[in-house]
Structure formats: C-alpha cells, structure tokens
Amino acid sequence: MNSSSKERILNVANKVIAEKGLNCFTLDEVAKAAGISKGGLLHHYPSKDKLIKALIENYITLFQSRVSEREKTLSEASPCNWLVSFIYEQFNQCKLDTNTMYCLLAAVASKQDLLHPVLEKRKEWIEKINDCKDPIMALIISFACDGIAFSNLLGLEVFPENTKAELMERLVNLSKECY
C-alpha cells in the first residue's frame, strides 16, 4: 500500500469517527469503510493505537504546514505573523477540516498518552509565544482559538459567521499588541 493509500485510510478513519462516533471506531469498521481487508489495514497500522497515533501526527503536520504557508503569504514582515497565521488557521480549520481533529477525540477516549505528539508541538508553540513582549496575552489568544476550534468539533458552536469573523479579527488585532 503506498502513501496515498495510507492517507486514504487516515481520511476514512476520521470520517468513521465523525459520522458514526467513537463507539464505531474499530479497525474492522475502518477497513470496511476503506474497502480493504483488515489484514491490509493491520499491515500499516498494527493496532488501533498506532492508527490513532498516525491520525494525530497527520493532523499536526497538516495544521503546521497550513500555519507556515499562511505565514509566508502575509504581506508585511512582522514578528507576529506566526500568531496571526495560527489564529487564521484555527478559525479556518473550524470551517473546512473538522475531520482532522476527530483523532484528538479518539485519543482522549482511548489513551491520553497518545496525545504526546500534540503536547510536544504545543511546547514548541509556547516557546514562540514566550518570545512575545506580552506572552500572557498571546496565550489567551491561543486558548481562545482552541476554544473556538473545539466548540466546533464538539458541535457546541453557536456563533453566527459574522460573530466568528469579528472574533477572529479582534484576536488578530490583539496579537499585534503581543510583539
């Protein structure tokens, strides 16, 4: 199975969680939904934990690449470009790609230690935040973005689009005060 097949398995696994819930997130269900044998799935992901770990690593890679790409597109060179990019991607993720976050729910429901890659990435982000002249405000902004993303993931989002846009713009403006 090539890497695009492995990516397809990860996409299908996220969709199984999103559409059927964590109780139906089994290797059998993922294999069936992906149209492959369970043995084919086990060849690349020998356990549910390995599959969840791959889902999380894929989520981190995807999110980080989106932040980096957005950072490159910002017109003015500014030390707050990383935080601004982070804000936009957290809000963008809410709209476009909730499926990539379902792996976090699976990890929380399964084994907390599967979240280790996320914790390591967050430590890197905290280091960037600590370089700000106002790291506490940058942390508040980061946690506000997390709250928006997780509210969407959990189906608790109650804000109309225009309110979310205003929230995002306010957070972007606040981020400029952090540097």
Rank of each mutant, 00 (worst) to 15 (best):
N2E: 06
D49N: 09
D131C: 12
P117C: 06
F91W: 02
G39R: 12
K111W: 07
K32E: 10
P135I: 06
Q64M: 08
P135V: 07
K38W: 07
A77Q: 13
G147P: 03
A138Y: 08
S4F: 09
K15P: 03
F63M: 08
L167F: 04
F63R: 08
A54W: 04
P46F: 14
S47Q: 11
L171G: 01
A138I: 08
A18N: 03
A33F: 03
K6W: 04
I126N: 13
T73N: 13
E177K: 09
I56K: 14
K176I: 00
Y45V: 07
S5I: 13
C24D: 04
D113T: 15
S37R: 07
V30G: 06
E120L: 13
F86C: 12
C103I: 09
D28L: 04
G39S: 13
S75R: 07
E161N: 10
K111D: 11
D134Q: 06
E57S: 14
I52K: 07
D113L: 07
S151Y: 00
V16G: 03
K176A: 00
L62P: 00
I17L: 09
G21I: 03
F86V: 13
N11P: 00
A18L: 07
S37G: 10
T73R: 11
D28H: 06
W125E: 12
R170H: 10
S68I: 04
S75Y: 10
Q90T: 06
Q112H: 15
K133I: 10
A13I: 01
S37E: 04
P117S: 05
A77K: 09
S175G: 00
E127T: 14
K20T: 01
L27Q: 15
A18V: 02
Y179G: 15
K48M: 14
K72S: 04
L174I: 05
S5Y: 08
G39F: 01
N162I: 08
L105I: 01
L167Y: 05
L41H: 11
L167K: 01
R70A: 12
K111A: 14
P117E: 12
C24L: 02
K164C: 06
A34V: 08
K164R: 12
C132K: 11
N99R: 02
E124W: 13
Y59H: 07
S175M: 00
N92D: 11
R8T: 05
A149E: 10
S151A: 09
L119H: 08
G35Q: 04
L74S: 03
N173D: 05
A106V: 13
K121C: 10
N58W: 02
L115G: 14
H44M: 14
S37L: 05
N162S: 10
K72E: 12
H43N: 12
L139V: 02
S37Y: 06
V12P: 12
F150K: 13
Q64P: 00
